[in-house]
């Protein structure tokens, strides 16, 4: 059995008298991207900064591939997109990425090729000779992500990779991450649960400085009963619930927000409930926007 790539034991961190992380324990294996979620002030960025070696914890043990964060043995193996960090405006993007590659052990010639490779991965190869100041916010974020790919690291921390980006750039970044997941394990901190739901199989949730839920599986229910999430056009909620409640296998229907219904049902009793729902909608001449198996990540984590 492989050793976990991250092990965190009894981790505490205080800023003055305020305890930001309270006895955090978890371990993460290599594999699919893992989301780190939590409300503002939950300690996500603090945990990220400690994992990247930017911040020394007040107490506790952390190990990345068997080494302390920031250890020289982790150079080239662990990388990160720190929140709001920017490249030096005095140098071209290519010169800086090449310099980073040289520090990671590349020769001068290979360092240039590596800089071009990572820029190509984020579709910004043409910006090699440009200064960072010429880039838009979205392009700057992509370049910052590109630097984290130098040397094909095994583990990459991404702190709010899509914060402040428009939908097109968000989608581009999501695709870039998805393309790299075969060789790299990503730990992604984000408030965008839709984004995490699409990228991650597991989610680690921080709340009030503690791990509120251990590693969750976003795609499957943990109970014996199953869920279907249904989004409809605007129809009276009571009528919709009464209509769908009559279907065989349905246990209970929740209406967490307008036009969204979460149907809990017994798969043993009715394995084809999704097809039955569609038929009933057709009979009632109701249009639907989306029907998906399971609960949304937001519902799983917070409700």
């Amino acid at each position: 059995m492989n050793e976990p790539i991250i092990t965190c034991q009894n981790l505490n961190h205080n800023f003055g008298k305020k305890q930001v992380l309270d006895n955090i324990n978890f371990s993460i294996d290599a594999g699919e991207p893992i989301g780190l979620v939590g409300p503002n002030g939950a300690g996500k960025t603090t945990l990220f900064n400690i994992l990247c070696g930017y911040l020394h914890p007040s107490s506790g043990n952390i190990s990345l591939f068997g080494h302390k964060p920031g250890a020289t043995k982790l150079i080239g193996k662990v990388s990160a997109l720190p929140q709001d960090a920017q490249l030096d405006p005095s140098f071209s993007i290519g010169a800086q990425l090449s310099f980073y590659a040289k520090l990671q052990g590349f020769s001068s010639k290979d360092a240039n090729s590596e800089a071009l490779r990572v820029l190509e991965a984020v579709d910004l190869k043409t910006e090699f000779n440009h200064k960072p100041t010429t880039l838009s916010h979205g392009m700057g974020k992509r370049v910052a992500i590109a630097q984290s790919f130098i040397g094909k690291p095994s583990l990459v921390f991404l702190d709010e990779p899509t914060a402040g980006l428009d939908p097109v750039n968000t989608r581009t970044i999501r695709s870039i991450i998805a393309e790299q997941t075969t060789d790299t394990t990503f730990i992604i901190s984000s408030h965008d649960l839709n984004e995490l739901g699409r990228l991650c199989q597991q989610v680690l949730m921080l709340e009030k400085g503690t791990i509120q839920s251990t590693l969750l599986d976003a795609s499957h229910s943990t109970n014996k009963s199953q869920f279907i999430t249904l989004q409809l056009e605007s129809y009276p909620a009571t009528e919709v619930i009464n209509t769908l409640q009559q279907l065989s296998g349905v246990i209970v229907i929740h209406n967490p927000q307008k036009n969204e219904y979460i149907i809990e049902y017994s798969e043993l009793k009715e394995p084809n409930l999704d097809a039955n729902i569609l038929m009933r909608l057709s009979e009632k001449n109701w249009s639907y926007r989306q029907l998906s198996r399971g609960k949304t990540l937001e519902e799983q984590l917070f409700f």
């Binding site: 990247c52 070696g53 930017y54 920031g70 150079i75 080239g76 662990v78 990388s79 990160a80 720190p82 709001d84 960090a85 920017q86 490249l87 030096d88 800086q96 980073y100 520090l103 990671q104 630097q147």
Partner: peptide, 9 residues
């Protein structure tokens, strides 16, 4: 934040 990029390397 450039030091954060550098200290990774």
């Amino acid at each position: 934040g450039t030091l954060r990029f550098l200290t990774l390397r």
